[in-house]
Every structure is written in C-alpha cells, then in structure tokens.
Design a protein around this nucleic acid. Structure first.
Length: 228
DNA sequence: AAGATTTTCAACCGCTATCAG
DNA sequence: CCTGATAGCGGTTGAAAATCT
C-alpha cells in the first residue's frame, strides 16, 4: 500500500528525474512501477514513471521524424487495425504507440484539411506517400537486429534513414552522464530517498550493453500477429 | 521584429485487462 | 468467485517550437 504522499509531481520531466528513473529501472527492472516510483525518490506516480520510460527513456527507442517507410507502414496497418496503436507500434521497433498516435493525428488532420479544400492529397506530409506495393502481409518487424527484413525491401533502409535523425538528441547526454565513471554506487538509491543519484549520476553501462531485458523481447510480436 | 497561428509531442486521464491472494 | 493492485491502452490536453503574416 502506498503511503499517501503530500503531492505527486506532474508535468515535464527534468533531466535529473530522468537520470534517477533510469538508475532505478536499471536496478530493479522495468516492472513494478509503483515500487520503482517509491524507491527512486521521484515524487511521481508509477504510472508516470512507466510512461516516461516507455515513451522516452527506453534504450531501444528511435527519435525524430518518421521515415517514408515507417509512414507507409503506419498507414497500412492503421487501415487494417484501426486505432490499435500499441499493436502497430510492435511492428515498428523503436517507435512507441504514443509517437505513432501523435503522428497519425497530425497526418489525418492534414489530410482532412486538404480534403476540405478540395485538394487531392498525393502525399500526407513531408514525404511522398504512395500506396504502392508494400503489401501488408510482407511487413516485417523492422530492424532491431531481428534479421527479418528480407521480405520487405521497401522498408529495409528504415534504420539507416532514422539513425541520422537521432544524432544529437538529448538522451545521448543523459546516457553519457549516466556512464560517468565517477558516479556513486547504485545501491545508494535503494538505501533511502534522500540518497538518490540526484547529485551525481549513477554508473550504468551504455544503452547498448543494457540488455537485462533484451530490446528484441521488448518489441516481440504477439503470437496472434506472428500467425498473420 | 513582433504578434498570430499552426504543428508537434510529452504527459495526463480514465478505462480495461490481468493476476495474485 | 471476489477484490485489490498493477500494467497497459487509447483519447485528450496543453505547452513549446515552428511557421506564417
């Protein structure tokens, strides 16, 4: 039972909070979010921590614009599944349901506007989306080293395309800080809320090494989808 | 240059599903 | 079965950034 806190923090996360959360998740894994919220010393709800982790801090995430291939996949999968964002997200490793949802809203709004103005809409947004023969049945789970992009030539370049977009995004800095060699013992977090890594970042392996939960597992498809 | 408008996206909320006791 | 805790999903909001006038 969670003891009643005075007031839970809301709103945007600070870099410091991010670091604290990453440290704690590294220690205890990405389950039991209420516990993580408590132990981390963050005055946040478990729900909020989970959301932040899933949508922003998870090491396998891509950031930046959707590639044309990703856009196409989203459109096609949405046509098939509707607003099943998390399901669609599972087909786009590195992309979150939130991100896809946001993208779709923007995309649809543009489309709706174009329609209203009586304009044909050959493309949805920045990229030229052609509903070409990138058949749904051949849409693989992109990237993440799963090596299953062979049957989807239209999407194979997704990772390369998006990789460059990620350059210089703020998470790099967070990870760098976390990697700092002078960081204190991780266990200090668990010892008390006041002794979080807030003053100096914890020592963590790089995101690449961070495989206590393999990203491939994180992005694995449900059985149902595999059958499709 | 400055104000107005639009776009983007992080984060919250409410609800449902699942699971352990 | 029932209940409470937890996780996850989809819809929505609002602030910041970008673009336009």
């Amino acid at each position: 039972m969670v003891t009643v806190r005075e007031e839970m923090r809301k709103g945007p996360w600070t870099e410091q909070e991010d670091i604290q959360l990453v440290c704690t998740v590294r220690l205890f894994g990405d389950h039991r979010w209420d516990f993580i919220a408590q132990v981390s010393g963050l005055n946040r709800t478990g729900k909020s921590c989970r959301l932040r982790w899933v949508n922003y801090l998870h090491p396998g995430l891509k950031h930046g614009r959707m590639s044309p291939q990703e856009e196409r996949i989203i459109i096609e999968l949405h046509a098939r599944w509707g607003n099943r964002w998390s399901r669609i997200a599972r087909r786009l490793p590195g992309r979150t349901d939130n991100e896809i949802k946001n993208y779709w809203r923007t995309h649809m709004r543009k489309k709706a506007q174009e329609r209203k103005m009586g304009m044909p809409s050959p493309s949805s947004s920045s990229s030229s989306l052609t509903y070409q023969t990138c058949l749904l049945d051949t849409i693989p789970v992109i990237g993440m080293g799963s090596g299953d992009t062979h049957n989807g030539s239209c999407v194979t370049s997704t990772l390369e395309n998006t990789q460059s977009v990620m350059d210089g995004y703020p998470m790099d800095q967070i990870w760098k800080e976390i990697e700092a060699p002078h960081a204190p013992n991780l266990l200090s977090i668990a010892e008390g809320k006041e002794k979080t890594c807030s003053s100096s970042p914890c020592h963590l392996p790089s995101p690449v090494m961070w495989d206590y939960k393999c990203p491939e597992i994180f992005w694995k498809m449900g059985d149902q989808e595999i059958m499709m």
